[in-house]
Design a protein around this nucleic acid. Structure first.
Length: 804
DNA sequence: AGCACGCCGACT
DNA sequence: GTCGGCGTGCTC
């Protein structure tokens, strides 16, 4: 008799990170399945928590007395076998709690809300009852809303059993419903009814008229209200008079309100055809196979994706396509929808939890066979996947920077293996890691060396800003760039200007004493935000007024430094008063849909210059853009991280691809203080292969990935000493276990040593093969939990995307 | 996480 | 003497 369920409870700690056994009560005996969410009593207070059933058996090895499962939250499993296994893989490979991984895989709407309510016991005296409950039957218990006196009083009453606490688990997964109206089939009855309504009942008259003419189809109540111009009250009375029937129906939000025009597959170039053939063969044979699709901007990668996905669909399989969040623009999404229509589900951060849940269910029940989405879409509940595509595979945003710190590429490869399907990693500038794996034959390389209509790559020139600065006053614009901009405006062509702002933004500094306004909680300077007229901290959200005089020396010469887009925009307006500038940065795109709106404006030539940060480098295609300017190529080079050259090269190559995509020739001007740096020189010649060879040599010499694996361990504590002490202890443990081949960097304070009033220390371990390491790290994590709540905390980040 | 148990300071 | 501070350990 299988009557014991193994449940992972929703308590994310190390001590509760394994399944707990619960008895399955009689009434659920044949209903509970693995992958369902349940509610169980947990702990001494029997508080209710959500749990995930991960196994069912009759193993009674637990020698305490078992509790029963309280209730089931799902009618059918929300996690299938594959995704459950995947959660295990995630937990193990990222050193995360099983429950955290499960909740990462499931849509947010399936995460419950916990509430507590107070209920008076029958024995409570009237005075207490009246004072606490004030006539109400129950009271929501929010401890942070109560004073300590109130709290202790409640606790006392609870101890005396005068008050009961009810634990509530609220499921937020509500399917959206709407009211559907169907008229009575008896039309002659409706005609007769005209006579029976009161004179002047215009709404009822309009409703009758509409019902008579509407036919037998069902309409939603909201549509009816609009179309017949009646109120919902009128409709309700229509129901009473038997003119119509109302019923509540579950609806799946239709993302295809505005149908896109369908497109047909394009004729492929020979290189594209080779790629599609190679991928299709693996689809047809249900064979796991990782590919690297390497092609410059405009070489037609997207068409290869689309036709490969079409192949999977024709084999009655499904397709998963991942793109960086930033390029999940309507431009991109529409290309997929135009090919596959209503079979496409799109998952992106713009959707509400409810909308995401709707899409998730469409995928799960098989209504959507093609999924397009950003990082977390890699967990889409598709069955029978025929192909997984990851566009711009080098993008670092594919790695999640909170627990579970997974890389979507690893998950994609895992799922590819599980389903037996090709995984296509596409990029113009592949990550060294993937490109190196291709070199070793672990990944099959597919090349698209030519641009589709044989346009030449844009001409790239590099301007040495050191000369510029010495010649004239400080400016963000070199003479060469400014002249080029003027020329395009004259010719009514468009310009994209990129401000490479990674790591920097405008901060305030006193010109007399050098004082920089810092965040009181974090070791970072506050950033100037002109839109809200305030100084903000990008890490903890602290906000304060812009100082008018220096808080340190009272000087009035306190000015902002660094180059923000706002400052550049101001300078542009001074230099070129007639140019229309569209600024795109975190401030102007914060509102939902603002991003698209600005791009549309630029596309309609309502602006001459698109000025923005990194976000304009990706996936935009504006044929009228003939000039791309990079104002400061160096800022990303200056970051003390082994990735900085790779990032800079990728960024410059990518933004250069924005110039001259149509018949007009493009030009790119890169301003830099390091004109001779190889990343900039090789971006100038757009030579990925040479960059790859050179950078690999450097990584080899200095023992960096992809020659070594890396793991980053960080500690944080309320004081610097505590964080450091724990980190040194871990470092000592690590050195004892590791072989001579491993390289330990640190411990060192993190680049931003203090965030939200906590101090951070880190340790990097570079290694090739350390069978003991995983065990050690797990032990370190377990020990850190024993240290108690207020002690220093440890977190582990395998294969970090940067060492900072 | 949240609850109970248990051991020390400052109060009716 | 007790009330209540929060450090510690456990939850099927």
């Amino acid at each position: 008799m299988e009557q014991i369920a193994k449940v992972i409870v929703d308590v994310p700690t190390m001590q509760t990170n394994s399944p707990y056994s619960y008895l399955i009560p009689q009434e659920f005996l044949n209903q509970i399945q693995v992958g369902m969410r349940v509610i169980v009593s947990f702990g001494k207070g029997n508080r209710k928590v959500q749990g995930m059933v991960v196994g069912i058996d009759d193993d009674k090895s637990f020698d305490g007395k078992l509790k029963e499962i309280d209730s089931i939250m799902d009618l059918q499993p929300v996690l299938n076998t594959e995704l459950l296994k995947l959660s295990g893989y995630l937990a193990e490979s990222t050193f995360s709690f099983a429950i955290t991984c499960i909740q990462t895989i499931l849509p947010n709407a399936l995460k419950v809300k916990y509430e507590k309510e107070l209920v008076p016991a029958t024995t409570i005296n009237d005075a207490d009852k009246a004072q606490i409950f004030g006539g109400q039957k129950r009271l929501l218990f929010e401890s942070d809303q109560l004073t300590t006196q109130q709290l202790s009083r409640l606790l006392k009453l609870k101890k005396a059993n005068q008050i009961k606490i009810n634990y509530l688990v609220q499921d937020r997964a509500k399917a959206k419903t709407e009211i559907q109206i169907k008229r009575t089939p008896n039309v002659s009855f409706l005609r007769e009814e005209f006579d029976s309504i009161r004179k002047g009942a215009v709404q009822q008259e309009r409703l009758l008229n509409y019902l008579v003419s509407m036919g037998e189809k069902q309409v939603s109540q909201s549509d009816l209200i609009e179309a017949a111009d009646v109120s919902s009250a009128t409709i309700k009375s229509g129901e009473k008079k038997k003119w119509l029937t109302r019923s509540r129906v579950e609806v799946l939000r239709d993302p295809f309100k505005h149908e896109v025009t369908r497109t047909q597959p394009l004729k492929l170039q020979p290189d594209q055809q080779n790629a599609v053939d190679a991928i299709s063969e693996k689809i047809n044979h249900s064979e796991y196979s990782p590919f690297l699709l390497e092609g410059v901007t405009g070489s037609g990668k997207t068409e290869v994706y689309l036709q490969s996905m079409a192949q999977a669909l024709s084999e009655n399989k499904t397709a998963l396509m991942l793109v960086p969040e930033i390029s999940l623009t309507p431009q991109m999404v529409n290309r997929v929808k135009a090919r596959f229509g209503h079979q496409v589900a799109v998952l992106h951060s713009g959707l509400s939890d409810g909308e995401k849940y709707d899409e998730w269910r469409r995928i799960e029940r098989g209504d959507a066979k093609v999924v397009v989405g950003a990082r977390s879409a890699v967990f889409a509940p598709l069955n029978n996947i025929g192909i997984i595509i990851m566009d711009e595979e080098h993008e670092t945003s594919y790695k999640q920077d909170e627990s579970p710190r997974y890389h979507a590429r690893d998950v994609a490869l895992w799922r590819g293996k599980y389903h037996g399907c090709p995984v296509v990693l596409g990029s113009a500038t592949p990550s060294l890691e993937t490109r190196a794996r291709a070199e070793k034959g672990l990944v099959t390389r597919l090349l698209l060396p030519n641009r589709i209509n044989h346009q030449s790559l844009p001409a790239v020139s590099v301007v040495d800003m050191k000369n510029e600065i010495s010649q004239h006053k400080e400016s963000n614009f070199s003479t060469e760039l400014l002249d080029a901009i003027k020329l395009r405006i004259q010719r009514k062509e468009q310009i994209v200007l990129m401000l490479n702002r990674r790591g920097y933004s405008s901060f305030i500094m006193c010109r007399d004493c050098g004082f920089v306004l810092m965040c009181p909680n974090c070791d970072i300077s506050l950033t100037l935000h002109m839109d809200t007229h305030s100084m903000k901290c990008h890490y903890c959200g602290h906000e304060e007024a812009i100082p008018k005089i220096c808080p340190n020396c009272q000087s009035h010469k306190i000015r902002y430094y660094g180059t923000g887009t706002q400052k550049v925009e101001t300078e542009l307006k001074e230099l070129l008063p007639d140019a229309r500038v569209i600024r795109m940065d975190v401030d102007t795109t914060r509102r939902k849909g603002a991003h698209e709106k600005l791009l549309d404006e630029f596309g309609n030539h309502e602006g001459d210059i698109l000025l923005g940060t990194q976000m304009i480098a990706k996936g935009l295609d504006f044929p009228n853009v003939t000039l791309v300017g990079v104002l400061n190529a160096d800022t990303s080079l200056g970051i003390p991280d082994y990735h900085s050259s790779e990032r800079t090269f990728q960024l410059l190559t990518q933004v250069s691809g924005r110039a001259g995509r149509a018949e007009k020739a493009g030009q790119v001007i890169i301003q830099t203080f390091n004109p001779d740096h190889y990343a900039i020189q090789l971006a100038k010649s757009q030579n990925y292969e040479q960059f790859f060879a050179y950078e690999m040599k450097i990584r080899h010499e200095s023992n960096y990935p992809p020659y070594y694996y890396a793991v980053q361990i960080t500690t944080n504590a309320a004081t610097e000493a505590e964080a450091a002490k724990l980190m040194f202890k871990i470092a000592k443990q690590a050195r004892e276990v590791l072989s001579d081949q491993a390289i330990v960097l640190g411990p060192t304070p993190q680049t931003i040593a203090r965030i939200k009033k906590r101090y951070y220390y880190q340790l990097i371990i570079k290694y090739k093969k350390e069978p003991q390491l995983n065990e050690l790290l797990t032990k370190v994590l377990k020990n850190s939990q024993k240290l108690g709540r207020n002690a220093a905390k440890v977190s582990i980040n395998p294969n970090p995307v940067s060492f900072m």
